[in-house]
């Protein structure tokens, strides 16, 4: 305010002749209506731009991303469950196959065993039959031998008696030999 402005209309009361500010331009009330007017317009425009376009759009993007992430997580969970299921199915198939193999092996073993048992029984029966036959033959042979021994003993006794100068009494010799054989 020290110097008089050259052009009052151009400079106003806030700017000196040199074009420099007089005091604080912030306190120049001549400019207030202009600033406030444009500020209000700017704020209204920004508010409309934000509330009509920018904010709904960003909210939609964020919501969509959240949805996508949630979906992906759910899908991952699903796939994981499926993998676990598949593993279980695989394990079950493995166990089944093992059991089947065991069953087949057991069956084969049982079959072999029964065949073996049959064969053994047959062989046993044959052996038994053969043994019985042999025993019979042996008994026969033994009986035959006993008879022969008696005969021989009697003959020998008679001969001995004769050789010693005696008279062979057939009856006495028989009884004596029988007695000796029994004893």
């Amino acid at each position: 305010m020290a110097t008089e402005p050259v052009n009052e209309e151009v400079a106003g009361s806030c700017v000196d002749a040199g074009g420099s500010a007089i005091g604080m331009p912030q306190l120049c009330f001549d400019w207030f209506p202009n600033q406030i007017f444009w500020l209000v317009i700017t704020l209204v425009v920004i508010f409309l731009v934000l509330s009509r376009v920018a904010l709904p759009r960003i909210a939609a993007i964020l919501a969509e991303r959240k949805g996508t992430i949630t979906n992906d997580l759910a899908a991952a969970e699903d796939l994981k469950a499926k993998a676990v299921e598949a593993e279980e199915a695989y394990n079950k198939a493995l166990a089944d196959a093992r059991a089947e193999a065991q069953r087949i092996a057991a069956e084969a073993r049982a079959e072999i065993q029964s065949g073996l048992d049959d064969a053994i029984a047959k062989a046993d029966a044959e052996i038994a039959a053969k043994a019985a036959e042999s025993e019979k033959a042996i008994a026969e042979i033994r009986a035959g031998a006993l008879e022969s021994i008696q005969l021989v003993a009697k003959d020998t006794a008679a001969e001995l008696v004769t050789a010693l100068g005696g008279e062979a009494d057939a009856k006495a010799i028989d009884s004596a030999v029988d007695a000796q054989m029994k004893g």
Binding site: E9, V10, G12, C14, V15, G19, S20, A21, G23, M24, P25, Q26, C28, D30, W31, P33, N34, Q35, F37, W38
Partner: peptide, 22 residues
């Protein structure tokens, strides 16, 4: 230091009115 805060019209040299483009 305060000159940077001066409000001036963008077009022409008129006074700063309410609707002046500054």
């Amino acid at each position: 230091p305060m000159d940077q805060f001066i409000v001036k019209p963008l077009f022409g040299d008129g006074a700063v009115g309410m609707f002046t483009i500054t």
